[in-house]
Design a protein around this nucleic acid. Structure first.
Lengths: 200, 200
DNA sequence: ATTTTTGTTGACCATTTGGTCAAACCATTT
DNA sequence: AAATGGTTTGACCAAATGGTCAACAAAAAT
């Protein structure tokens, strides 16, 4: 499975850290080497170029995102429970990923998405699930694209913008963390209520 | 009021463009000079350093954001109308600003917010307005911090993430634009319904 | 008209940065 | 112990980049 050698793993981990914090332009090969505990020459021995290393990190992060979109839990019976557990999982996933890195690089170079577009572009499973439910009259009709975007936005942006929200709300780190702990539940409740009412 | 000379304006406009697209690390003084139609030496004549120029752009953009938060329209009578028109204005404002730039630089250097913290930190007027309405029993109680974050998230993230949403929903530019035209209304409706029901 | 101030730029500089390479290092094989 | 092949690195390089400066041009002040 993982055909990566120990130094390769260390390098990729270090590169991820540096790229995600500094972006492509701001990242320094020396810094990545330091972080990985090796020399810059060794870094180039394992990964030909900065560009090469960046592609690995970017592609991996994008893959994780794309994979998440096609995740759907079939454990529970009611759509309310399904949606709620999906949102909780989605939010926790986002907490571990650096969205800002992806968004920033795509903004700087939109072509990064073009190469991805070839790959399978499955409609998010949770969209098809709800569309089906609505088609069979088991649920009020809603525009699921709106719901999709709402869910993403509500989960992602508070993580992206945490520092500014902290500042404008006057919360300290601890308060904000406590707040964010119950936040995904609030999001789920909002979306469930909206879906029950029908959203267009 | 505006004590900026013509070349200064041109430079700041050019710098804004370049910084917002490339970020601080990726921006090139030569590119800014080219964009402004002057030599790099002239650029340094007007603005001592890259750092200096960056601060101007960053501070100005931050100010605009902070100013917006304290905007509140007292034209209409009902809170529903007030909120709706605020959301529409907020969304249109965000469309003209580069959030990604701000978020990225704050992420890279959180101290950028510390210098700002000194300045007036007024509680968003729309929060105090609703808190007052709820305190006087004219409205069901809601956690206005949640509403505040929801509103920001729903307005900002679809703009930040437009390209990826386009990809995952399969919309082309035209479709997405049309979709985003009626989007703020949908956001307003959602939040109004949530407030009527009470959100916590 | 002459001086002074302000604006403009090509040429140049010091530093940084991605990348290379030959030499050294080390484990395994012969 | 000698040879082999993969690994590591200090020293080095070419290009890029932020910044300077002397010289020149244009405008303002005298």
């Amino acid at each position: 499975m993982s055909e990566l050698t120990e130094p390769e793993k260390k390098i990729l981990e270090a590169a991820k850290k540096v790229f995600e914090l500094q972006g492509y332009a701001g990242a320094r090969m020396q810094q990545i080497a330091d972080e990985a505990g090796i020399s810059k020459a060794s870094l180039h021995y394992y990964f030909r170029s900065k560009e090469n290393l960046f592609e690995r990190i970017f592609d991996e992060t994008m893959s994780d995102f794309m994979e998440l979109v096609s995740t759907w839990n079939d454990d529970s019976e009611h759509w309310e429970d399904k949606l709620k557990s999906f949102i909780l999982g989605f939010f926790n996933f986002l907490k571990t990923k650096s969205l800002l890195f992806i968004l920033g690089e795509i903004n700087r170079n939109p072509d990064l998405l073009l190469s991805r577009r070839k790959k399978s572009k499955p409609k998010a499973k949770f969209i098809t699930y709800f569309e089906n439910l609505q088609a069979t009259g088991k649920m009020k009709p809603s525009n699921m694209y709106v719901v999709y975007i709402f869910m993403h936005s509500l989960c992602a942006y508070p993580l992206l913008n945490a520092r500014m929200f902290q500042m404008t709300t006057g919360m300290n780190n601890q308060d904000y963390e406590a707040f964010m702990n119950k936040y995904p539940d609030t999001v789920a409740d909002l979306l469930i209520n909206a879906l029950k009412k029908g959203l267009n």
